[in-house]
Design a protein around this nucleic acid. Structure first.
Lengths: 196, 196
DNA sequence: CCTCCATCTTTACGTTGTCAAGATTGAGGC
DNA sequence: GCCTCAATCTTGACAACGTAAAGATGGAGG
């Protein structure tokens, strides 16, 4: 039996080797971003939370930006999972848009890092691949469903993405009136109905 | 004749009192954000650029966040100016959306700070007023012009704002294909035509 | 059992934001 | 014309941060 604990296993038992530090750092980083923001995130505070030395995070992520890049990658993977879970995207693309906004509102820490280019290494291969896969899941059916049959699929998809992304960003930024922010999903369905 | 120089006046002559430091700090701050990002902005580097002591900015803006708040206020005022310059918004709302996106692309430093709630004091009265005025200019005609006459003006305006804001945000984030980012205005007109 | 190396710690350094105290000077009252 | 005042800017100091280098630890494979 190994002495070093996995996440949550053998509480109280701590050894030199943590066992699953990378995953736990990512989890704690998301918590910290939720509590303040990506700007307020601090590698030393993060290390304090997890109970390791202040230089431990740098070993796993190289950099503060590297940590945020990993958060963004995780976010794109989560987004992709939620988008592909939508039953019948081609004939009911509205639900894909709803899933997109729901993801943004439920994972605001991830979302804010994912779409802030200044917060991660822009050419990181993992990031590029995760973003590509999420974009593929989003476009799965987006091209087919849109207002005008006369417009090209690419234009339809871009319009749909812009609409749901803009709504999510404005909502997260606190720029929308209270009645919209109270029931964002209903408001989204109203405006999406104008497009689809 | 006063010895202390206004911005650009009497080059080489520097006295204790700068004369127009606040404005010059704002200008240099926007330059710095353009060169790197709001994250990369540093009060000390800003002071170095302008040629004052490292604590001078804090005297005018109180805080680093206060400086960014002032940048956001200036941005909302600029945005409002560009929106009200659109000739006939009620009958040609598409041009208001184009002006919105054009502002975002031409003033990306301002834009990124304006819509990042973590970057400024959210309850600053100047910020609230400037944002309200800009929103008023945006809604001027947005309610009237939209796809379905059966939908409410508020829904129309929200849809239009979401579309143009989402497009601008995605474009600035580098999330769109190259052909779109090369000619953003043409792409915007294509997707906006689906809504208006 | 012994060595290797990934993992984590320790130490150190330069930079930053912020505060408090001091210096400078234009402006207004006498 | 002088003198005080308050706004403006500087200086000095301090804790916290990111990052790099070097050292300690211990599981894994031979």
């Amino acid at each position: 039996m190994s002495k070093w604990r996995y996440a949550g296993a053998m509480p109280g038992t701590r050894s030199y080797h943590h066992g699953d530090l990378r995953r736990e750092l990512l989890r704690a980083a998301v918590d910290l971003i939720d509590e303040s923001s990506a700007y307020g995130l601090t590698l030393r505070e993060l290390a304090r939370r997890v109970g390791v030395s202040h230089a431990a995070p740098a070993h796993h992520f190289g950099d503060k930006v590297g940590l945020l890049t990993a958060v963004a990658v995780e976010g794109f993977e989560l987004l992709r999972d939620e988008l592909v879970a939508v039953p019948d995207p081609a004939s009911d693309f509205m639900e894909v848009g709803v899933a997109y906004v729901r993801f943004a509102l439920r994972h605001r820490a991830h979302f804010s890092v994912m779409f802030n280019a200044d917060l991660h290494h822009p050419h990181d291969p993992d990031l590029l691949e995760a973003r590509r896969a999420a974009g593929e899941a989003l476009n799965r059916g987006a091209a087919a469903a849109a207002a005008g049959e006369g417009s090209s699929p690419a234009v339809n998809a871009l319009a749909a993405w812009s609409l749901v992304h803009g709504f999510a960003a404005l909502c997260l930024g606190g720029n929308l009136p209270a009645e919209v922010e109270d029931e964002p999903e209903a408001a989204l369905r109203s405006i999406a109905a104008l497009l689809f």
